[in-house]
Computed example of a mutant assay.
Amino acid sequence: MRVDLFDFDLPPERIALRPARPRDSARLLLATGTEALEDRIVCDLPALLRAGDVLVFNDTRVIPAQLEGRRGEARIGATLHKRVDLRRWQAFVRNAKRLRAGDVIDFAAGVQASAEARGDDGSWTLAFLGEEAVEVLLHRAGQMPLPPYIAGKRPTDAQDQSDYQTMFAARDGAVAAPTAALHFTPDLIAALDAAGVARETLTLHVGAGTFLPVKAEDTADHRMHAEWGTIDAATADRLNAARAAGGRIIAVGTTSLRLLESAAGDDGVVRPFSGDTAIFITPGYRFKAIDGLMTNFHLPKSTLFMLVSALMGLERMQAVYGHAIANDYRFYSYGDSSLLLP
């Protein structure tokens, strides 16, 4: 499909620079089949779901993956996006034309990394030097990797350390938050429990590739960056049992959805999964594992807008986004949310 079919005009003032407070007071746009759109708020969620439904959250935790350093006199910026092994990460590098294989980059607080090799996608493999665990080094030298559409408008600050983590964050490895889950609070979870809505967690370590624009003119020519994820056998069994009993599987965020779809067979059964996924979902895709999606509002011509268009239909999502823009919904990572039930 032509990528320009997924373009739309978004006024800059619709981009949220801070989350709603409390988190579950954010707006929620309900789109069910072909029914009229409904303007709700996130804390209405227990009334919009049914007993027996299952919300599936991503429990990845964002690491301080944004690094600033020098190679000689050259300033070098690095955003880690995928772990290779205990000491090596793939990274998108700013001012990469000043970098050669074998160069050592000096980051803050005495943290150093050797530039090993440049990949076909332009990213670099960085090997962190020394004996300390890379996690320790990142917490000493790194910053929270806010999306460019926020970081370009204001600096990262101490508030982002908590704002850009979900309440489910448990497993270090993401360089971008699974932002749909940012709206959840203990009070909302208690209300969902009381309504009989179950929840499960999986892990997909979100990479910085999620922010990259689609540069190809046709979706068939776009290459997705791989991300690592896992679903254990017990979780897969509970999801399959819930669906067999008539419950709906509602992915909280596109990251949860993509891993569930990667783990499901054509029979709709979710199986244990551990490894990389580079699944790219566009209109025409047949969903196997999920019955709905809670997600924020995405960038024009992004792979994520393509995904929601695959779920609901492009014309329907154009109407949803048109309504959201006209009614002052807040967009992107810190913005409002939608509940999509095809």
Rank of each mutant, 00 (worst) to 15 (best):
N58A: 06
G77T: 15
R98S: 12
E116D: 13
Y149Q: 08
A47Q: 15
R118T: 09
C43I: 06
L138S: 11
N58I: 10
A108P: 06
D103Q: 06
R75F: 07
A133I: 05
L30Q: 04
N95P: 00
G122D: 09
R98H: 13
R40H: 04
A141K: 06
E132R: 15
R61C: 08
L37E: 04
R70Y: 04
L80M: 09
T34Q: 13
P148N: 08
R27Y: 01
A51D: 04
Q143W: 05
L45M: 06
V62L: 06
P46F: 00
G119L: 14
N95Q: 09
G69H: 05
A47L: 10
K97G: 04
S123Q: 10
W124D: 09
E116H: 03
A78C: 14
L30C: 07
L29T: 06
T79N: 14
G102E: 03
V93N: 05
V136H: 11
E116K: 10
L137N: 08
L45Y: 01
I76S: 03
F107Y: 10
A133N: 13
G33N: 07
L137T: 09
L30K: 05
F128N: 01
H81L: 09
F57R: 08
D103N: 14
A91H: 02
E132M: 11
I150E: 03
A65H: 07
G52D: 04
R71F: 05
W89V: 05
F128L: 02
V134Q: 06
N58M: 08
D106Y: 01
A36F: 01
R94I: 12
D85L: 05
G72T: 04
G77E: 15
L49G: 10
I76F: 03
D39E: 14
P145L: 07
T34M: 04
A51P: 15
L28E: 00
V84F: 10
F57T: 11
V134K: 06
R40V: 00
R70G: 00
G110Q: 03
E38K: 15
G119E: 15
R83Y: 04
R40K: 10
G33A: 08
A91N: 08
L137F: 03
V104E: 10
A65R: 11
R75I: 02
R71T: 11
D120Q: 14
A101R: 13
L138W: 07
E35I: 02
E38M: 08
A113Y: 01
N95E: 07
L129Q: 13
G110Y: 06
R94V: 12
G142F: 10
L67H: 12
R71D: 03
L86D: 15
A31R: 03
D120V: 13
P145C: 09
L45D: 00
L37F: 00
L99H: 03
R83F: 05
R140T: 08
E68M: 13
A141R: 02
A127V: 10
G130L: 05
R61N: 05
D106H: 12
L80Q: 11
N95Y: 01
R75W: 05
C43S: 14
H139Q: 13
L49A: 08
T125A: 08
Q90D: 14
V84R: 15
H139V: 03
G152M: 07
D121M: 11
G77Q: 13
A141F: 01
G33R: 05
V56P: 09
A91K: 07
H81C: 08
M144K: 10
